[in-house]
Design a protein around this nucleic acid. Structure first.
Lengths: 137, 137
DNA sequence: GTAATCCCTATAGTTAACTCTAGGTCAAGA
DNA sequence: TCTTGACCTAGAGTTAACTATAGGGATTAC
């Protein structure tokens, strides 16, 4: 079975070798095997697991919580409910985050047109007399 | 003109007093005035500025960069282009982040149904034989 | 008039997530 | 043979963004 070195995996996942070793130290990759010299050899399935870890990271999940999930995976069917609940929770959290970013977007869009107008006029004074935005950002 | 204490502002923005003082120390609120005892008194316009700061923070902008923006605001019309460019950049960054989260969402949704099926079957084995997902997360 | 509650500064401590260094092993190429 | 480059561990250092503490001043409530 084809395996990959830590350097190859780092390149593929756009992570540093340091980061991968750090994840390993934190218990995020107990499934990665070593060869006779103690060198890590990553299987394809290890790389998919790392993709899931990256996915969870991008939901804002801290590494310690991701470790719980990894531990549950090793414990088998008894933890299925935990894992399901965890993904439902992640789903809710990502939905909330997207909503928040969409609201942020509205403010940013507003500021873009605010500055576009000001820039065209050569001065922010064009916005004088409108609500508050005279003095501060 | 009505003003607010740091405690009131903290409550309104859902930040700790520590955080607000930290922002002040970092130069994010040079516009907030003090009374004769040295106590901060926040104007309405200061609070709107803080809302913008929170908005920028939620785009993932680090505090040091937010400070640049605040400095530009104080410098006046000469920095309009910088500020416009900055908001365009924030816009792009938020768009990218939303896209990333939407992709994350697809993976999470997939995992949710994966675990739903496993849970209904009482074992993860129902997914055996499908691609890789037998051993790892 | 004193105790509680708010505010202040300066400075130290915390946490997460890396990032790097030192010192070492091992295999391949010149 | 020897040196280059990839890997290893243990542990120190870094950075951002808070968070807390110590020590002190002003206002209000009883």
């Amino acid at each position: 079975m084809k395996t990959y070195s830590i350097g190859e995996v780092a390149k593929e996942l756009n992570l540093s070798i340091y980061t991968l070793r750090y994840y390993d130290k934190e218990g995020l990759m107990p499934f990665v095997e070593r060869n006779e010299n103690g060198t890590r050899r990553f299987k394809e399935s290890d790389i998919s697991a790392l993709h899931i870890i990256e996915c969870l990271k991008s939901t804002g999940m801290p590494i310690k919580e991701i470790k719980h999930f990894i531990d549950w995976c090793a414990e088998g069917d008894a933890t299925l409910q935990h894992r399901y609940d965890m993904f439902l929770e992640r789903k809710a959290s990502v939905e909330a985050k997207i909503k928040e970013l969409q609201q942020t977007m509205e403010v940013i869009d507003h500021k873009c047109s605010y500055y576009k107008t000001a820039l065209d006029a050569g001065t922010e004074d064009v916005h004088k007399g409108k609500k508050i935005e005279i003095v501060n950002p």
